[in-house]
Computed example of a mutant assay.
Amino acid sequence: MDAEHEDRPRVVAVSRDSDHRFSKPVVQELTLVEGWGVEGDAHAGTTVQHRSRVARDPSQPNLRQVHLIHAELFDEVAEAGFAVAPGELGENVTTRGIDLLGLPTGALLHLGDDACVRVTGLRNPCQQINGFEPGLLREVLGKADDGVVERKGGVMSVVVSGGVVRQGDQVRVELPEGEQTPLEPV
């Protein structure tokens, strides 16, 4: 990527796994399917696919079809001594140059030429993160100075329009009209 485009919001990596494992292997490209999620990924579907949510109520709508994490989180946890690479925290799309956590509910992320996802909420980091790397959970789930819980494990979304997403694709943000609603865990 040339220096002129290096600071633009972009996709750093894409990952998927057909099985329910914590980490997802990086792949060359993802195909997003409208209303479904990532083709070939264990979390794709119109209803919840996350094991604990299926156990509670399998008829809930799947608001977690595509998981996105900002690569800046990897930089941040590296300062605390943790080495994390794309896909290792279970995300499908790793981005750089966009404040995912600062987006409002309903923001649209245009990924590459055709794909678009609508942000539904924050990922709620769980104890499995410590299973991946002991102590990492405290780096992605903490408290701000005012005591508010900070969830840094990325955002969840649903596919609004399908398409292929690859490393290097640009990301364009479209904010919802009207009053902006801060992200909550989904």
Results as ranks from 00 to 15, higher is better:
residue 126 C to H: 05
residue 33 V to C: 02
residue 96 R to Q: 09
residue 124 N to C: 11
residue 135 G to C: 12
residue 142 G to I: 13
residue 42 A to E: 08
residue 178 G to S: 06
residue 109 L to I: 01
residue 31 T to R: 14
residue 19 D to N: 10
residue 179 E to F: 04
residue 30 L to H: 01
residue 102 G to M: 14
residue 167 Q to D: 13
residue 49 Q to Y: 08
residue 159 V to R: 03
residue 186 V to W: 02
residue 149 V to G: 00
residue 9 P to K: 13
residue 86 P to Y: 05
residue 86 P to M: 06
residue 90 G to T: 05
residue 41 D to E: 10
residue 181 T to K: 13
residue 57 D to W: 08
residue 108 L to W: 06
residue 155 V to F: 03
residue 22 F to R: 11
residue 95 T to S: 13
residue 179 E to Q: 14
residue 37 G to K: 04
residue 100 L to M: 08
residue 43 H to R: 10
residue 47 T to R: 15
residue 74 F to D: 10
residue 113 D to Q: 15
residue 33 V to P: 04
residue 23 S to Y: 00
residue 40 G to L: 09
residue 23 S to V: 03
residue 5 H to V: 13
residue 48 V to M: 07
residue 180 Q to F: 01
residue 83 A to D: 14
residue 122 L to F: 12
residue 141 L to D: 03
residue 48 V to D: 05
residue 42 A to L: 04
residue 6 E to Y: 09
residue 112 G to Q: 11
residue 31 T to M: 10
residue 97 G to F: 04
residue 50 H to E: 14
residue 173 V to Q: 09
residue 68 L to D: 01
residue 68 L to Y: 01
residue 15 S to Y: 05
residue 102 G to S: 11
residue 75 D to L: 11
residue 23 S to M: 01
residue 18 S to H: 12
residue 105 T to Q: 15
residue 68 L to A: 13
residue 69 I to K: 00
residue 67 H to F: 06
residue 171 V to C: 02
residue 92 N to P: 08
residue 161 S to N: 12
residue 126 C to Q: 10
residue 88 E to C: 03
residue 53 R to S: 14
residue 163 G to L: 08
residue 8 R to Q: 12
residue 133 E to R: 15
residue 82 F to M: 06
residue 68 L to P: 02
residue 6 E to F: 07
residue 94 T to H: 03
residue 83 A to E: 15
residue 184 E to A: 14
residue 44 A to F: 11
residue 14 V to K: 00
residue 126 C to F: 04
residue 77 V to L: 08
residue 93 V to P: 00
residue 109 L to F: 02
residue 171 V to I: 15
residue 164 V to G: 00
residue 79 E to A: 15
residue 132 F to M: 13
residue 71 A to Q: 12
residue 66 V to A: 11
residue 96 R to T: 03
residue 80 A to H: 15
residue 169 D to K: 06
residue 110 H to C: 08
residue 117 V to E: 09
residue 136 L to F: 14
residue 82 F to L: 02
residue 88 E to R: 14
residue 122 L to C: 11
residue 85 A to D: 15
residue 137 L to N: 03
residue 141 L to T: 01
residue 4 E to Q: 11
residue 180 Q to C: 04
residue 26 V to Q: 10
residue 144 A to Y: 02
residue 167 Q to V: 02
residue 85 A to I: 05
residue 175 L to E: 13
residue 181 T to M: 09
residue 99 D to G: 01
residue 102 G to D: 11
residue 173 V to S: 06
residue 38 V to Q: 03
residue 167 Q to I: 00
residue 115 A to D: 07
residue 30 L to S: 00
residue 60 Q to N: 08
residue 70 H to N: 15
residue 147 G to R: 11
residue 34 E to C: 09
residue 52 S to W: 07
residue 117 V to P: 09
residue 156 M to C: 09
residue 46 T to H: 13
residue 81 G to V: 09
residue 131 G to N: 15
residue 103 L to A: 05
residue 106 G to V: 06
residue 162 G to H: 11
residue 77 V to A: 07
residue 57 D to T: 04
residue 173 V to D: 02
residue 71 A to Y: 06
residue 1 M to R: 10
residue 164 V to A: 12
residue 9 P to H: 11
residue 118 R to A: 14
residue 70 H to M: 05
residue 48 V to P: 05
residue 95 T to L: 07
